[in-house]
Amino acid sequence: MIKVLFVCLGNICRSPMAEGVFKAYVKEKGLEDKFHFESRAISKWEEGRPVHPKTLEKLTPHQIDLTTKRSKAISELDFLDYDFIIGMDKKNIDFLKQFDDGAFRNKIHMYNKFKDVKDPYVTGNFEETYQRITKSMDKWIKKFEKTIKEKQVE
């Protein structure tokens, strides 16, 4: 099983959106036994708060329910537990690479290699965020499946 952690600033918009759409995607494809998706924040500003109402509103038509999810900050244990730690923007990546003096750099990836997934809390554009996340899903699933195959060879 591949364990993937999506990370953004507050864990109320982008990273829970990614968590939700990936969980729904693998369930639809019958692959949920191969993956585990979660999300975290790089800050504790929103700790314990629910997912942003506009994120929930964006996901509801897709039968994705994150009403029980609460913001949680990333911890050292997460770096040990997850195979992929995916930041939604460059600032997230910079923070993650500094964690534990860079010992987990090989697990850290930017969601879109050359372009931030903009924070809809700031931009107000939840549709754009949703589109950016869903546009790259197949690419990520292929990368995760490749990792599964490599682990089976070991």
Rank of each mutant, 00 (worst) to 15 (best):
F144W: 06
Y82D: 03
H52F: 10
R49Q: 11
H36S: 13
G87M: 06
V153E: 12
F35D: 01
D33R: 13
C8H: 07
R40E: 00
K72S: 14
I64K: 01
A41Q: 02
K34R: 14
L80S: 13
Q63G: 05
K151S: 04
H36Y: 15
Y121D: 10
L31W: 08
E127F: 14
E57L: 12
E150I: 06
P53V: 07
S39G: 05
D89S: 05
D94F: 00
S71H: 01
G10V: 00
T134I: 14
A41Y: 01
H52S: 11
K29D: 02
Q98M: 11
I141E: 02
G87L: 03
D94L: 04
C13Q: 06
V117N: 03
D100F: 02
L66W: 03
E46N: 07
T129L: 03
N11C: 04
K44L: 12
N112E: 14
D138W: 09
L96P: 07
V51Q: 07
F144R: 03
V26D: 05
K29S: 02
K44G: 14
V153N: 11
D81T: 13
L31P: 04
K54P: 12
N125L: 08
D89Y: 04
E128T: 14
K115Q: 11
T123G: 10
F126C: 10
V4Y: 01
K135R: 06
L59R: 00
K54V: 09
K69I: 13
D138F: 11
K135T: 07
L9H: 03
F99L: 02
H36T: 08
S15P: 06
S75A: 06
Y25M: 06
K90S: 12
S43D: 02
P16I: 04
F114D: 15
D83K: 04
L31A: 05
I108F: 00
F99V: 08
M1W: 04
P120L: 11
K135I: 05
F144L: 02
M88Q: 09
K3R: 15
C8N: 09
F79K: 04
D101R: 11
T55N: 08
R49P: 02
V122D: 14
E46F: 02
P53C: 08
T123Y: 12
I85Y: 00
I64T: 00
E127Q: 14
I64F: 00
M137P: 01
V21M: 04
F6M: 08
F22S: 01
Q98P: 05
S75T: 15
R105M: 03
I133W: 03
C8G: 07
K44T: 12
H109N: 08
F99R: 08
K139A: 09
K91H: 11
A18P: 07
A103F: 05
R132Y: 15
E28K: 12
W140F: 07
M110R: 15
E128Q: 15
M110D: 07
P16L: 09
V51L: 07
D138M: 11
H36K: 11
G124Y: 10
L31F: 07
W45G: 15
G30E: 08
A73Q: 14
T60V: 06
F37D: 02
K118E: 15
K34I: 01
L77K: 11
D65T: 00
K143D: 08
L9K: 06
L5Q: 05
R14C: 00
D138N: 13
I42N: 02
N11E: 10
N125T: 08
